[in-house]
Computed example of a mutant assay.
Amino acid sequence: MSDIVVTPLKRPKDGRARKTGSVREKRLVNSRGKTVRVLSLDANSATFIDDLTLVFEKNVAKARRENKRVVGSADGSGK
């Protein structure tokens, strides 16, 4: 049986963005003429897990900013 190890995620200490590996960012124009950002990643990348985590974190941060703007609370509850 294997041991479970719990450690904190490693984050850059100086606030720099971490290296993105295979994550690619494209800016596209949607049908309404608004510029949108599309993040994509390579499923065969050696850094797939880190890349997926990065994209997930960016999506959550964007959703929280939008909730804060619309509802007034980052968690979307309005409280």
Rank of each mutant, 00 (worst) to 15 (best):
G15W: 00
G15D: 04
R16V: 07
R16E: 13
A17E: 06
A17R: 09
A17T: 12
R18W: 06
K19F: 07
T20K: 12
G21Y: 10
G21N: 02
G21T: 05
G21P: 01
S22P: 01
V23I: 04
R24A: 01
R24N: 11
E25D: 02
E25S: 01
E25H: 02
E25F: 04
K26C: 04
K26S: 07
R27N: 15
R27M: 14
R27E: 09
R27H: 12
L28G: 01
V29E: 11
V29K: 15
V29M: 11
V29A: 11
V29N: 06
V29T: 15
N30K: 03
S31Y: 12
S31D: 14
S31A: 14
R32D: 08
R32P: 05
R32V: 09
G33S: 05
G33H: 15
G33D: 00
G33W: 01
K34S: 10
K34I: 06
K34M: 15
T35I: 09
T35H: 14
T35Q: 13
T35R: 13
V36M: 12
V36H: 01
R37Y: 07
R37S: 06
V38H: 14
V38S: 14
V38G: 08
L39P: 03
L39I: 04
S40Y: 03
S40K: 04
S40M: 03
L41Q: 00
L41N: 01
L41Y: 07
D42C: 11
D42G: 08
D42H: 11
D42Y: 11
A43Y: 03
A43T: 15
N44A: 08
N44F: 06
N44C: 09
N44E: 14
S45A: 15
A46W: 11
A46M: 10
A46H: 13
T47E: 10
T47H: 02
F48H: 02
I49Y: 14
I49R: 07
I49T: 02
D50K: 09
D50I: 04
D50L: 12
D51A: 08
D51M: 07
D51H: 11
D51S: 09
L52I: 03
L52D: 03
L52Q: 11
L52T: 04
L52H: 09
L52Y: 03
L52R: 08
T53N: 11
T53M: 12
T53L: 12
L54D: 02
L54F: 10
L54G: 01
V55S: 00
V55R: 00
V55L: 02
V55C: 04
F56Y: 12
F56A: 15
E57I: 04
E57V: 10
E57D: 09
K58D: 02
K58Q: 03
K58C: 08
